[in-house]
Computed example of a mutant assay.
Amino acid sequence: MPTRRHPYPEWALARRALLGRRIAALRRASGMSQDTLAAAAYVDRRSIMRWESGTRDPRYLDLVLLAHALGVDVSDLVTVEDPQAG
């Protein structure tokens, strides 16, 4: 895979990490394991692990499937509120 010509800015990487924490918090709140969420969202468990750890970004359709599986709106996944901040 080719490397990016320009690295992502820090604020974008911070938002990626925040998205991962949000997915993990919503998954735990719904009582799902990573395996269960992966099956409900039609992805591999490795994808859930990568998104929650903030090492990869889900595609838009993956966000739609995640939101549906978690019973939330897509906007609830991409909110700027940090689930660990309180």
Rank of each mutant, 00 (worst) to 15 (best):
T55A: 10
E52K: 03
E81A: 15
Q84N: 14
Y60F: 12
W51Q: 04
H68E: 13
T55M: 05
L70Y: 06
A69Q: 01
D57Q: 10
E52N: 06
A67F: 06
V78P: 03
D57I: 04
A67L: 09
R59W: 07
R45S: 13
Y60K: 07
G54F: 05
V74L: 02
S75M: 07
V80E: 14
L61F: 12
R50T: 10
L77D: 00
L70P: 03
R45P: 12
I48W: 03
V80D: 15
D73G: 05
G71L: 08
E81C: 14
D57S: 10
S47G: 06
V74Q: 00
P83C: 10
V74P: 00
L66M: 14
Q84Y: 13
L66E: 08
E81V: 15
R56N: 08
L77F: 03
V64E: 14
V80L: 14
P83E: 11
V80M: 13
M49E: 13
S75C: 07
L63E: 01
L70S: 08
S47D: 11
D82K: 03
D73R: 14
Y60E: 10
R50M: 09
D82N: 13
V80P: 06
R56W: 06
H68W: 06
D73P: 03
V64M: 09
S53L: 08
L70T: 04
V64N: 03
Q84M: 14
A67N: 05
G54Y: 02
S75Y: 04
R50N: 14
A67K: 02
R45H: 11
T79Y: 10
W51S: 05
A67G: 02
S53P: 02
A67Q: 03
S47P: 01
P83H: 12
E81P: 08
D57T: 08
D62W: 06
L63M: 13
S47N: 11
L63D: 00
V72F: 05
V80A: 14
L65F: 15
D62G: 13
D57P: 02
D76Q: 04
I48K: 00
A67M: 04
S75F: 06
P58N: 00
P83L: 11
Q84F: 12
D73Q: 12
L77T: 01
D57G: 03
R59Q: 08
G54A: 05
L61H: 14
D82Y: 03
A69I: 00
A67R: 00
G71M: 06
P83W: 11
L66A: 05
V64K: 10
V72W: 01
L61P: 06
Y60D: 08
L61C: 09
D57A: 10
R59C: 04
D82W: 02
T55V: 12
S75D: 11
M49S: 10
E52D: 05
P58K: 01
V74M: 03
L77S: 00
R46L: 11
G54P: 01
